[in-house]
Amino acid sequence: MTGNIAFLGYGLAAIGPGIGVGLIFAAYINGVARQPESRGMLQTIAFTGFALTEALAILGLVFAFIFR
C-alpha cells in the first residue's frame, strides 16, 4: 500500500474544525429557536464564525498538498 501520510494528518486536523462548526450551528439553532425574530442578525454572526472556523480545516487541506 502506497500513499502520502500528510493526508492522514489532514484527516486528524479536520476533527477540530468539525467539532467547532458543529458547536457554532448548534448555538445558532438554539438562538433562533428561542428568539425567531433574531434570525437575521444571528445568521450573519453564525456564518462569520463558521467561515473563521472552517479556515483551519482549509489550511490543513492546503498544507497536506504542500508538505509532501
Binding site: 479556515a55 480545516a57 482549509i58 489550511l59 492546503v62
Partner: peptide, 13 residues
Amino acid sequence: VTLALRLFGNMFA
C-alpha cells in the same frame, strides 16, 4: 490569505 484559501480550498476539495 484565509479569504483566498477558503474559496480555493472548498472548490478544489
